[in-house]
Design a binder for these strands. Structure first.
Length: 310
DNA sequence: CTCGGTTGGATTATAGGCGT
DNA sequence: ACGCCTATAATCCAACCGAG
């Protein structure tokens, strides 16, 4: 913690970082060979690097730095823009420190095609006497023109899981991307590789076995969906209270029956790994998801191709 | 060659136990 | 109650890899 010995890992000095940032700002693109080489030589010629026992900067290191920095920058730009005016609530919200990085994500069912899409933000809400409350949803990757009013109770649900709730033997739905299509399949968890979380969230990996073809694959948490076996099992938890706090700030109601497992470890992700008869893709499409609660066949849509920006 | 994503090591922050 | 120490979690950063 204190009085650290000379670091064994390579680190750019503040001066070097500042210089590279300047170059990046000017170019706003990946620098060409000569530029990177020039910077490398520059750094190595400086006092910080030229003394005895000082570590020289390699060309690759400078190049890597630009690659990483540009990657970080583009990721930041990807954060879905939300219109502050309407007190929107981010579809991915940071609650208290949950083990999946604190992000509770929602997905909503589009009335256009009945498919479930990730929610970027809740833009507004309204109450209709004879019906359930509705929220105006901004879908991820779609613009304002695609916003939709959806029924909070029937067409919005929590998407995220806590990694701690995923255990070997659990039956889940897993997002599988193929060349032609990307869809959710029934699968079960064979193995869990716990990893430390960081700013990017959960880094745990799950070895899953797809029920329909028995293929196995390591997947990250964000490709895993809980598969509700008994519809009623889920009830609002602390998470939803937290959501309410956050959400009511923007005045958006919370789906009353979308309680996720985020309160404490091993919340009921599933009733029981063996309690389902759903072992095929068809089953997923016909009843494997929570959506079936509403008995309106939304699940087919869910099971159907989900556009993933392709 | 670039981009997006992943990995692993290092550093920093925090919580908890223990002795005084 | 306080300070010290240790373990763990959280975060940062460089390196690497595969796809296109």
């Amino acid at each position: 913690m204190t009085g650290q010995a000379p670091s064994l890992v390579f680190r750019f000095t503040d001066t070097e970082v500042a210089k590279m940032e300047e170059v990046l700002r000017d170019l706003n693109a990946m620098p060409k060979h000569p530029v990177i080489q020039g910077l490398t030589d520059d750094f190595n010629a400086s006092q910080d690097r030229s003394g005895d026992g000082k570590v020289l900067v390699q060309y690759n290191q400078v190049r890597n730095w630009f690659q990483n920095r540009r990657s970080v920058q583009s990721r930041k730009m990807m954060v879905p823009p939300v219109a502050e005016e309407h007190h929107p609530v981010a579809g991915s919200y940071s609650g208290n420190s949950s083990s999946d990085g604190g992000h509770v994500q929602f997905e909503a069912k589009s009335a256009r095609n009945g498919a479930w899409y990730n929610v970027a933000a809740f833009m507004s809400h309204r109450f209709i006497e004879t019906r359930d409350p509705e929220v105006l949803v901004r879908f991820t990757w779609l613009g304002p023109e695609e916003d939709e009013w959806v029924d909070v109770c029937k067409c919005v649900r929590v998407r995220s899981l806590q990694c701690v709730a995923v255990l070997p033997g659990d039956i889940i739905m897993c997002f599988k991307e193929g060349k032609e299509q990307a869809r959710y399949f029934d699968a079960h968890v064979l193995q869990v590789q716990r990893r430390r979380h960081d700013v990017r969230g959960c880094r745990c990996r799950f070895l899953v076995c797809y029920d329909h073809d028995h293929s196995e694959e390591f997947v990250p948490l964000n490709k895993v969906c809980r598969r509700s076996v008994h519809q009623k099992a889920q009830k609002p938890h602390e998470m939803m209270d937290v959501n309410t706090d956050k959400v009511t700030g923007g005045g958006v109601p919370i789906p009353p029956d979308q309680g996720g497992p985020s309160d404490k470890p091993v919340a009921p992700l599933l009733d029981s790994p063996t309690s389902t008869g759903s072992n095929s893709v068809a089953d997923v499409e016909a009843g494997g998801t929570e959506a079936t609660r509403n008995g309106e066949g939304a699940d087919e849509a869910h099971g159907d191709k989900i556009d993933v920006g392709a």
